[in-house]
Design a protein around this nucleic acid. Structure first.
Lengths: 181, 181
DNA sequence: CTCAACATGTAAGTAGTTACATGATTTT
DNA sequence: AAAATCATGTAACTACTTACATGTTGAG
């Protein structure tokens, strides 16, 4: 049950319409919680039905017409409750590691090329994060909210750094491997 | 569509029954692809219907009675195909980072305790991985399959190392933060 | 003979994905 | 007036989760 809370956070940062939220989920929040526009519209409907958000006044609801939402006090309270509540980490799911393990059994043919591709993708993502860090988080210590957001970005940067290093190491191992296929 | 391939890999490593697979998914493969026994039984049924696996001969199927499976040639071929096929990395989903971002808006009350708990969990997981590394992967270079499996374990170790470091850093930031709640 | 542990399964619900539908507004 | 883009939505499907059901085997 995280998508509704991701949306509440985004709406508290700035009231938005469904499509605007979708765009913001394509960057920023979407870096660690992705969502499609279908998910978002459905969830906006639910949140409104539960009285956690409402459409901005002075907007007639109509298909094809923009409809912006804002968070109600009950929504903010629910978000605070959820943020503070203990939650166990979800078990990892990583397809690439699974494929590597499978390749130990059925051979590594074809896998190396995709590792290379992933390395390139992670390098690009890392560069994008570093760009954001340079732009939005100058070295002087900012307001507490900014320091928290910087922490989140740091996690993204460090994770992408891990992947680029690990993939580089994996590719080096691959080239030292006899062709097993 | 990764679960069936995780199961094929596990069965190729060693023919097993549903419960045995469940146990192995609680460690080893489950470290990066978790699954419950319900998922596994359902998937075993599908894989058998598709002709990718079969029950070991000399076993009468009966409820409550152990039923072991082995991979058929078609199953091995499908696993090899899937391993070699290019796949985009799935977008990240991390609840803890989402909660941290929410805390920038609704306050950090309660979150610190859970960060501490997560740090402890990741430390334990890291210790477990390092134990496995010491036991199963001695420093001399083993067979190619072992080197591939070691690579997978290295990813687990490095990821847990990242989390312990990042959480330590985050907690240090927290204690330097004014109470915003 | 009862109880715990082993073993396989069914049912119902939630979350996420993919494909498609429809109206409104702006551009050419 | 046609095409592109903006904007909101429906429908169907797949994967995963949670709760429960049922039979078998071995220990005390």
């Amino acid at each position: 049950m995280s998508l509704p809370h991701a949306i509440l956070t985004a709406l508290l940062e700035k009231p938005s319409s469904g499509l605007e939220l979708t765009r913001r989920f394509d960057k920023s929040i979407g870096y660690f919680w992705s969502a499609t526009h279908q998910q978002i519209y459905r969830e906006l409907g639910r949140l409104e039905a539960e009285g956690l958000i409402r459409t901005l006044p002075s907007q007639q609801p109509a298909r094809g017409q923009k409809k912006s939402y804002e968070v109600l006090p009950a929504g903010r309270a629910e978000l605070a409750r959820w943020t503070a509540a203990a939650q166990d980490p979800k078990p990892q799911r990583d397809v690439l590691l699974l494929r590597l393990r499978a390749s130990a059994v059925v051979g590594t043919a074809g896998l190396e090329a995709d590792l290379r591709r992933h390395l390139e993708l992670h390098r690009r993502q890392l560069a994008e994060y570093q760009e954001i860090e340079k732009r939005d988080f100058p070295p002087d210590r900012g307001a507490p909210e900014d320091r928290l957001r910087h922490l989140v970005l740091r996690a993204g940067i460090d994770l992408e750094t891990f992947w680029t290093q690990w993939l580089t190491h994996a590719l080096a191992e691959f080239s030292a491997l006899p062709d097993t296929d």
